[in-house]
Design a protein around this nucleic acid. Structure first.
Lengths: 103, 103
DNA sequence: TTGATAGGCAAGTTGCTACTTGCCTATTGT
DNA sequence: ACAATAGGCAAGTAGCAACTTGCCTATCAA
């Protein structure tokens, strides 16, 4: 569950892929490949990127849809929302929190 | 930088250690060892935990202070604050876009 | 001082993970 | 039909990371 999310985020290349999809959502494998090479100079094979996408998908950070011979990858940031609040105490409130007891 | 933080969070044992320090801050190595064994049944050597603590410290998630023969480990959640906002756009739009102009 | 406690350093092993290579299927354009 | 495009599957390799083992230093209590 959250385990897969942390594992997916552990790799810098996968974080770059998330960056690219944040910049432009719904890209294909080849588009992502091209962008990684062009913008970051990463020399990666197509399969390497494909495997990274698989990891991101099992983590729930990615949703894919197929149209013809194209497979589009859509970002899903839901798993990122509360992944870190586990260690952030109820103070340090800089996000809208429960309007319960505010001392 | 943020690279070290993600790498530190990738390991489930290290996340357990953060849990333990969230529950009780300022523990020593032996205390953390004892808690991991007692509460999670993890059979870890002292050095294993020590190395995990070193990783957490280089990631900035941990600050240590020495008193006599004791070394206390204090949690620092600052690196966790904005680690994930990078992909959380201000717009929460999850509507997939159209792909690039297909050549 | 002696022994017990708290921790550190370094080399070695094992298992996972990122990446490659090679071949295969499916869809589309001409 | 045929070739090009988009992607998938599976086995193999190299490097790293988690963990162990063994020995060492420092502090405190008796």
């Amino acid at each position: 569950m959250a385990d897969d999310v942390f594992k997916a985020l552990a790799d810098p290349t996968r974080r770059r892929i998330l960056d690219e999809l944040t910049d432009r959502n719904g890209q294909t494998l080849f588009e992502i490949c091209g962008r990684l090479v062009a913008k970051h100079g990463l020399g990666l094979s197509r399969q390497a990127v494909s495997q990274h996408l698989a990891v991101l998908e099992t983590a729930g950070l990615l949703v894919t849809r197929r149209e013809g011979r194209y497979k589009f990858h859509d970002l899903n940031t839901d798993p990122l929302e509360h992944i870190v609040t586990r260690w952030l105490g109820p103070k340090t409130s800089k996000a809208p929190q429960t309007p319960e007891s505010t001392p």
